[in-house]
Design a protein around this nucleic acid. Structure first.
Lengths: 118, 118
DNA sequence: AGGTATGTATCGGGAGTCTATATATAGGTA
DNA sequence: TACCTATATATAGACTCCCGATACATACCT
């Protein structure tokens, strides 16, 4: 298995990743963590000490909302994108694509061509 | 003119950008700043208080080396990639492409198609 | 003489991720 | 029973990195 992405590299896009995962539907923290880990093939794996403060921050900014669910076995806090959160996801994605294009252009002349694994 | 990229979005890739700019050839701090600003159409524009400590950090890590040049008018500190720095540029670029692919896959189902400006 | 651009550098503050720790419950096993 | 692991959320302190403010110095223009 490959390593996880460096912390400093992840920093820029972690909010965007969480918002993307939540766009798939309502999820609780631990499930968000699992979803992201799986969809990134283990490369993106924020720790609990990162994730929960991040979710609190997103909720403070009203990008997500939460509800407690304790009926069915475990105590879980389910999160959902707000309308504001959906807009934010769109604009952050747009900004990320632009950064991506910018960096691709910068890297184009300097990267070595390496053979793709068959 | 469009806005600069958000600080938090930039954080992950600023080192990589500086290394890329230096791959074009020997440059001094102020010139690195200008090069990056121009090649990013003004979207990436790290401040002096960011750039100079960053360059010191890269030099401490032996990814770049420097020499003072005071003969021709202004006092300038010219920076160059080391062999280690070139390797780092390759590996960080590789990692960035992988993160990029990961995020593209995540965003694919959630982003709206917006018409390209003609 | 004064203002702007060039050029490098440090300091304090703020934001965000890490590790470590705390708490609690469900399920499996010795 | 007792223990261990996975599940589930949360906080505290340490650390890194970027920013704005500030400092200093020189070249050029008006």
């Amino acid at each position: 298995m490959t390593e996880t992405f460096r912390t400093e590299l992840m920093r820029g896009s972690l909010d965007l990743m969480i918002l993307s995962v939540l766009a798939e539907g309502e999820k609780y923290g631990y499930l968000i963590q699992q979803s992201l880990r799986e969809s990134s093939n283990g490369r993106a794996d924020p720790k609990a000490g990162t994730l929960y403060p991040l979710l609190q921050r997103l909720e403070t900014d009203k990008l997500i909302r939460s509800r407690w669910e304790s009926e069915t076995g475990r105590r879980r806090k389910w999160y959902n994108l707000t309308a504001k959160g959906k807009k934010k996801l769109q604009s952050q994605a747009q900004e990320w694509f632009e950064l991506s294009a910018c960096l691709n252009k910068l890297l184009e002349p300097v990267v070595q061509i390496s053979p793709e694994p068959a």
